[in-house]
Design a protein around this nucleic acid. Structure first.
Length: 542
RNA sequence: GGCGCCAUGGCGGAGUGGCUACGCAGCGGAUUGCAAAUCCGUGUACCCCAGUUCGAUUCUGGGUGGCGCCUCCA
């Protein structure tokens, strides 16, 4: 039985969907008016893990993640840049989707956009007015908070306490300072839709009440979002939903926010005035620099309800830790899921897998951690525990247990094919181009010729020819050009270099072999000497 | 001012009324020509003060400190 912490009751509660086996999950998405930042990705990553686990536990999950594609911030941006509001919102929505893809968010089923539901919002607002829960003021339609019993129950505040704390200058003519706009009448030049109250646009909050209703119904299982949305956004969603006569969300889940050195990184954080600081939290920077797999792992290593530290030290530690798991998994990491079935089948198979008792104990702990309010961090710790114990197993048992590690990991979104390459991104690896390597090879050949070791120099040239690289000796040094496919040349030339280094090692000329290794390292290539020979790969810095 | 959250070893970060979290870093060892990677071993941490208890880091009360929300924010 899954337990979920419900913000509304501030308790962990047994989770039972409204319709057995069917879960409706609504998670607030973004207002697309600026570059995607890491905070925007917290919800998707975390709730992707939640959705995967709900599926593993035998549920079908409809996961709705909305896009608020019309809003004051978009309009302001359009006014500032001269670009149309449509272009801005489309561009940043696309960017958001790109990052969801890079982070392998695979469970979202719906991305409704605000502008696609204007008629439904107008109908909804009309309904609220008809029920005397909203009223028309000079500049729009407002929700009447005083008509609501228990307004503030989600964020734990009372209306009378809020008046003194209210720092915003509200439009005059409101019945209560906390009343909020359902419909904003357009000023000249602003985008607008016709409505019974005049041309205008929806206020913030109404889109979620309407779109959740349109996609999941008036009562649904889980509503999620960032902690900062608790008030006023979610509070007002509840107000609207209940005023409309809906039971609205039964369980509210709020994810912790990004912080840097212990302090939340928010929109109006003074530190954000420094572009260099702000840049650190852009999704593009983080994913390019540390790899999407690292970012996702870092997020899942913590607990969804707690803030997440994004200081560089924390990110590097996460990457190192993940790298350890990746190395253990080896090639199996990149194997596509064998099943065509879903998470439920995968979990059943994982539970049925025959593994030694110590591994099975970790497996049990993993499942218990996920069942207990989606404890992805504890669950990942179980994976480390397994990997550690697997070292002590005979090879054959180890293979089955490693598969278990991988398959359990995949149930929370980690260990996707391609992830290994994703922890060390191209931005970090020095460009290991063929020309860097060729410079080294030609140097080695020149050295051999100087020693009058023509057998070696000829062997190098022959191997290069074989690899699709033609060498031309000239008075002022050798040049080279491609004669074959570039894709295979790199591998072939590396084979040659490794062979030359092996020769030096066999001759006990370690100075020479180390020179080769150092030169390659300088070009961003790391050599790994193993019992089966030497392999090469991109060298990670960090 | 109101509401709420959190205080764990060098760092990050779980968790529990008595028993190893885990990762990173560090240290010792194995392996290696030297490295890298890998493996083995290693650290008696739980803010302070009372109370409950046979026993509290874990429960209760108080204190101190940090953070969040009450405005835009994921």
């Amino acid at each position: 039985m899954i337990q979920v912490f419900n913000t509304l009751t501030r308790r962990k509660e047994p989770f039972t969907p409204l319709v057995p086996g069917e879960v409706g999950l609504y998670v607030c998405g973004v207002t697309p008016y600026d570059d995607c930042h890491i905070g925007h990705l917290m919800g998707p990553v975390l709730f992707d893990a939640v959705a995967r686990w709900l599926r593993a536990r035998g549920n079908r999950v409809r996961f709705v993640n909305n896009i608020t594609d019309i809003d004051d911030k978009i309009i302001n941006r359009a006014n500032a840049t001269g670009e149309s509001w449509q272009d801005i919102s489309r561009r940043y929505t696309d960017q958001y989707f790109t990052f969801l893809k890079r982070l392998r968010i695979a469970t979202v089923t719906d991305h409704p956009r605000c502008t696609e539901f204007i008629p439904q919002m107008i109908a909804y607002i009309s309904d609220l007015i008809g029920r005397d829960r909203a009223y028309v003021a000079a500049d729009g339609v407002y929700y009447d908070v005083q008509k609501q019993d228990g307004y503030g129950k989600l964020s734990g505040r009372r209306l009378d306490e809020m008046i003194s704390g209210s720092r915003v200058e509200r439009s005059s003519g409101l019945r209560h300072p906390a009343d909020f706009a359902l419909w904003k009448l357009a000023k000249a030049g602003e985008p607008s839709w016709e409505s019974p109250w005049g041309a205008g646009r929806p206020g913030w909050h109404i889109e979620c009440s309407v779109m959740s209703r349109e996609t999941l119904g008036g009562s649904f299982d889980i509503h999620g979002g960032g902690d900062d949305l608790k008030f006023p956004h979610h509070e007002n969603e509840i107000a609207q939903g209940e005023a409309h006569g809906d039971a609205y969300a039964r369980c509210w889940m709020h994810n912790g926010l990004i912080q840097y050195e212990g302090v939340k990184v928010g929109k109006s954080d003074p530190r954000m005035k420094d572009p260099a600081f702000a840049g650190r939290f852009k999704a593009g920077f983080l994913v390019d620099t540390y790899g999407a797999a690292t970012i996702r792992f870092l997020i899942l290593q913590g607990h969804y309800r707690r803030p997440n530290e994004f200081a560089e030290k924390a990110i590097i530690a996460a990457r190192t830790a993940l790298g350890r798991l990746h190395r253990q998994l080896g090639a199996s990491l990149d194997q596509a899921p064998t099943d065509s079935g879903g998470e439920a089948e995968a979990l059943a198979a994982a539970l049925a897998a025959s593994v030694p008792p110590s591994i099975a104990a970790h497996r049990e702990a993993f499942v218990a951690a996920m069942d207990d309010d989606f404890g992805t961090g504890s669950a990942i710790a179980c994976l480390f525990g397994m990997v550690s114990d697997i070292q002590k197993l005979p090879a054959q048992e180890a293979a089955a247990s490693l598969r278990l590690v991988r398959d359990l990991g995949r149930l929370i979104g980690i260990f996707q094919p391609g992830d290994a390459a994703d922890t060390t991104s191209s931005a970090e690896v020095a460009p290991a181009s063929l020309s860097d390597i060729m410079a080294l090879v030609l140097h080695l050949r020149q050295h051999a010729r100087a020693q009058r070791a023509f057998a070696t120099s000829d062997r190098i040239r022959a191997a290069l020819t074989e690899a699709g690289v033609a060498v031309k000796d000239a008075k002022d040094g050798a040049t080279w050009e491609m004669t074959g496919p570039a894709e295979t040349a790199m591998a072939r030339v590396m084979e040659l270099v490794i062979a030359l280094r092996q020769q030096a090692r066999a001759d006990k000329d370690f100075a020479a072999s180390d020179r080769i290794r150092d030169a390659l390292a300088g070009a961003g290539i790391a050599l790994t000497d193993g019992p089966a020979g030497t392999t090469w790969g991109a060298a990670a810095k960090g």
